[in-house]
């Protein structure tokens, strides 16, 4: 199979999966390019950041127009993630890579356990009812979602960490943003994934310009991947609401466990 077709199919899968979970797909794209195609990590991170923008752009219009993404909380949290993405390089220069990896592993491992415990807990009728009446497009006031004013300060602080993850690893930061919105702010998982998908494009763009202008985004690698990502992300946005929340949560936990494992290996110096 030609390399271009493999890249296109990889992009299709990353766009669909990344968009569905609000991750952007960078978590898949970086390993695919480095392990599958032997691309150096810097070039892989550059293509990944552009692909994360494509994932966000491909699905966000549908999510915003259909009031699935909360653009208000999204823009507040994006302020934290963009600052975090831009300062990621500075922090990386202060803290050793292995310490950072260990911190991320601990954070993501704790998040995986917390989400796993929620998965095992039987959802009550009150939970489902509370999620169903949330209107992410409501203007602030009596009918506005509670999570918009609930722990916003710590939320923006943690979104800064999400931006750091994005800048350091060349991913969208959704792996932190989605649990942050769902577990810390209390947003329904479907709103958290759609909102994360809306804002990760902005987070990734903050870091992508440097890669792009420096020439670290190879057009021959990026072209088939970006085309696949946009098609995959557009498709997933239209079918996402048919996927049960439990399946979404389970898939997210699997990704968290995988990234925790990778970060632990890096912290131990095994990669």
């Amino acid at each position: 199979m030609p390399t271009e077709l493999l890249l296109f199919l990889s992009g299709l899968a990353a766009g669909a999966f990344g968009g569905l979970l609000g991750l952007g797909g960078g978590i898949l794209i970086v390993p695919i390019l480095t392990i599958g195609f032997g691309v150096p990590i810097t070039a892989a991170a550059g293509v990944s950041l552009v692909s994360v923008i494509a994932t966000s752009a491909g699905g966000a219009a549908f999510n915003v127009r259909n009031a699935r993404a909360d653009v208000r909380i999204g823009m507040l949290l994006a302020a934290g993630t963009v600052v975090g993405a831009l300062t990621g390089g500075v922090i990386a220069g202060i803290l050793p890579d292995r310490v950072l990896a260990g911190l991320f592993a601990a954070l993501l491992g704790y998040t995986a356990v917390t989400m796993g415990r929620r998965l095992l807990r039987r959802p009550t009728a009150r939970d489902a009812e509370a999620d169903a009446i949330v209107d992410p497009s409501a203007v602030d006031g009596p009918g506005a979602p509670v999570y918009r004013t609930h722990r916003t300060g710590p939320g923006i602080g943690l979104s800064f960490v999400a931006g750091n993850v994005s800048g350091l690893l060349g991913v969208g930061g959704g792996v932190v943003v989605v649990p942050l919105m769902h577990l810390v702010l209390g947003a329904p998982l479907t709103v958290a994934t759609a909102t994360s998908n809306f804002m990760i494009g902005m987070t990734a763009a903050a870091g992508a310009y440097a890669y792009l202008f420096r020439g670290d985004v190879d057009p021959t690698l990026a072209a088939p991947m970006v085309i696949g990502v946009v098609i995959g992300a557009s498709f997933q946005a239209r079918v996402a609401n048919r996927i049960p929340t439990t399946a979404l949560r389970l898939a997210f936990i699997v990704v968290l466990v995988y990234v925790t494992y990778e970060m632990t290996l890096r912290a131990l110096g095994a990669t």
Binding site: I53, L212, P219, A222, A223, V226
Partner: peptide, 17 residues
């Protein structure tokens, strides 16, 4: 041509903001 397309794509989030 591909690079102009990629540049335009990275400008989309800025236009959204």
């Amino acid at each position: 041509v591909t690079s102009i397309g990629l540049l335009l794509l990275t400008l989309v989030p800025l236009a959204v903001a």
